[in-house]
Nucleic acid binder design. Structure first.
Lengths: 212, 212
DNA sequence: GTCTATACTACGATAGAC
DNA sequence: GTCTATCGTAGTATAGAC
């Protein structure tokens, strides 16, 4: 049995139905194997769930890494360069959140955030934490403002604009009077979010100048 | 048996564990009644779930209504007045999303958005739709820009900044290095979101002037 | 209307054959 | 390692007493 195939099916089931809603029988059947193989390989449903979380952290890390892993530290960048890095990360994040390919990942993570278990620690520790901390540093550099508390809140609002595309997908589709978010819609959304990001960062710079 | 008490317990259970995760036995036991009373009153678990959705739509509507139900149409307002209405709605939305009092409601709705059933239609139709459409109109009036498509996308990003506080609560708490979001933190977040909202609207106005 | 008792189904875990 | 068979538990639904 190909383990990654079982994990991918497990992620899809957990994403669609949640930890309690998904059944090991169903997952095993979809993977064309016996349910007891889950017990054998992962020790049970819980173990499978945690393995799925690790798999997501690894896969998503691979997908997002090129957008923010440039080797040099954010603090060493020019403000304009930091800002363009922010745009790059946000853009990649939109692709990940809006795209159907990783729908299962993002749904899995969303569910996990609502009732966090150990799986959340693994995902946060594996990828999300690094992305968010990097964004904080970049916001500080881009605005020339060394206030981490404010930067963190700004980062939260920035990712909120993206998160909503997945977390409130049903609302977004209804409001936009669409059935799906295709490439064109993604581009429109990305353009608006980029404009908002610039507006938010510019305001942060303006606030800073007012103070000094 | 007090029906609204059973519904409140049901909402809490559904919010915490999801439709499949929650058990009718558990809900009935917590409400101090027999499980079969759920069958009698609601026809089963599904019926209870839908009744819970209706209850949420009614209660949340009552809570949010004062913020956006002023009688007169958004189109008749001055831009500044429209903007202050937007701030009022967003602020009320933050209180609702950040507060622990309505945690069960928002979690219920969040879960529903991930795998929408008929319950979502009821909630959207009862309250959320009206709030979003009102926001769209207000954005148009506040920016003097009669472009509904853009306004809708802006509204999505505006509520995204708020939604993230609940949908990604676990991430927000980790990033802010907190255990809870208390009144002070809520105020800080609200201030930032208000500043972002102004920045976004101002940019929208600036874009409009560039074109003309 | 509300509760008790029960039927039926599906789940996760485990033991054991191969 | 993988599968089959089975156990105990927990779920919903239903019938019937009161």
């Amino acid at each position: 049995m190909l383990q990654h195939r079982l994990l991918e099916i497990a992620i899809a089931e957990f994403a669609a139905k949640g930890l309690e809603g998904a059944s090991t029988r169903g997952i095993a059947a979809a993977a064309g194997t016996a349910m007891s193989s889950i017990t054998y390989h992962y020790g049970g449903k819980e173990g499978l769930y945690l393995a799925a979380a690790d798999y997501i952290a690894a896969q998503a890390g691979e997908e997002m890494a090129p957008a923010f892993d440039h080797g040099d530290l954010p603090a060493a960048l020019a403000p304009g360069e930091a800002r363009s890095r922010i745009h790059g990360i946000v853009r990649q994040f939109i692709e990940t959140m809006a795209g159907e390919r990783s729908a299962a990942w993002s749904l899995f993570i969303m569910r996990e955030q609502m009732a966090p278990t150990e799986a959340f620690e693994r995902i946060y520790g594996g990828l999300m934490g690094k992305m968010l901390e990097t964004l904080c540093e970049l916001v500080c550099t881009a605005t020339g403002r060394d206030d981490r508390d404010t930067a963190r809140i700004v980062v939260i609002t920035l990712i909120g604009q993206v998160i909503v595309l997945r977390a409130s997908r049903a609302t977004v589709l209804k409001l936009m009077r669409r059935g799906t978010i295709d490439a064109a819609a993604t581009a429109t959304l990305a353009a608006r979010i980029a404009a908002n990001t610039d507006a938010i960062l510019d305001r942060l710079i303006a606030e800073c100048q007012e103070i000094s």
